[in-house]
Nucleic acid binder design. Structure first.
Lengths: 215, 215
DNA sequence: CACTTGTCCTGTCATGCCGTCAGCTTACCG
DNA sequence: CGGTAAGCTGACGGCATGACAGGACAAGTG
């Protein structure tokens, strides 16, 4: 599946080359965490990696290209989110449990990858299809599974039948992503971190099942 | 309240100066809509405004400074969102009406100002307090009003009392903002635009009142 | 061991944007 | 009409970008 790693000018990268390439990606990741996306410069990344700008351009067309690579890898890793919803029950106490674990997993994942996720979100919002695809890949793993649950509860008459399951699931997932990406600044709008988790869990449970959770 | 407009080097701006300044802001706004934030350069803005980069730096410290100015004005304008929730009822059919109009107003506002709102969101997520404050200013107008409604319904026993009203309201508002900022790309994750509105309205109504809307 | 081959890195260069300054032009006012 | 402050820009040093050719290095070959 993963073809050979290639440089911009078409050579195949060997062991040493892949190591520097990886180091550049790592340093770029750190830079994204510590400074605004707009101010991340190739020369800074190269310096931090102990190499020169020319080397960077041998492996990536530009900063955006490298960011896409990081995002792609994280997207693959992000399929771990699927485990949070796949095969879970939304009935009774188990449903409350499911909602809580989904929220926790989401916040955790976002906290761990906040820098790159910010950039993906921006790219997608700006209309860049490559970023939009990656964002969809990450969220869809949760999204489609939630949509299935909604559709199932619809057939039992618990949820309004003329609503689109995908739209409900998508909105809830977007909510989780949005809150997660601003969780650091939550206190700025007068909410304590600890209050966020239960509230989100209740909202998710309400949205999926149409009922308040039984704890 | 609004002090005199001043240039970077301390002069007071006269009629002509304020016009140029405004033109620069307008052009920057257009640039933000048409190209990625990362690629917006001072020289492009200046060229489009029919002036020189040096002039830009006379009125703004840098691109970010000008963006903050645009954001600030929009935040003032954005208090129009307050009208969507202030003094509205969440009971019965009126409640469903309120939810729908809130969603509509939100999506509309976002569609009109998507470019600048994207940048504000990014800045806030990156931890810049100036952007966070502006974002809070926009969202708080809706947020606090919603929180009041939740608190009121809590006292009637309709909503769980150990949940933070501010956290619930904040999460719902974050959802609206997130979906709004990705509404163009909604089809990418398999949802039609038209399906979004009712789903969001239902979720908001559920979150605030704890009950499905009666239509 | 010298030689070859192909990968890997960097010095260097042209180009273009950044951010600042001195200085020129324009408008206003007594 | 002269003085004063506002308004604008040309020009400049500095730095990032992106391309290239060539040197360093490791591994295989006779």
């Amino acid at each position: 599946m993963t073809g050979q790693v290639r440089t911009v000018d078409g050579r195949v990268a060997g062991r040493r080359g892949q190591a520097t390439r990886q180091k550049l990606l790592d340093c770029l990741s750190e830079m994204l965490s510590s400074s605004p996306y707009r101010d991340v410069k190739v020369i800074d990344v190269a310096r931090r990696a102990g190499t020169s700008p020319a080397t960077f351009y041998q492996y990536f067309p530009d900063v955006e290209g490298a960011v896409l690579e990081i995002a792609d890898r994280m997207a693959a890793d992000g399929s771990a989110l699927t485990a949070l919803v796949e095969g879970r029950s939304w009935a009774g106490k188990a449903g409350w449990q499911t909602a809580q674990e989904l929220v926790d997993g989401f916040l955790e994942f976002w906290k761990k990858n906040d820098a790159i996720l910010r950039v993906i979100d921006l790219g997608a919002a700006e209309g860049d299809k490559r970023f939009a695809r990656i964002r969809a890949k990450i969220l869809n793993s949760v999204n489609s599974s939630l949509a299935d649950s909604v559709a199932e509860l619809q057939s039992k008459g618990r949820v309004d039948k003329d609503l689109s399951p995908a739209a409900i699931a998508g909105s809830l997932v977007a909510m989780l992503a949005a809150v997660a990406s601003h969780q650091k600044g939550a206190s700025a709008w007068g909410v304590k971190q600890a209050e966020l988790r239960p509230s989100l869990a209740v909202l998710v449970h309400l949205g999926i099942t149409g009922r308040k959770p039984t704890r």
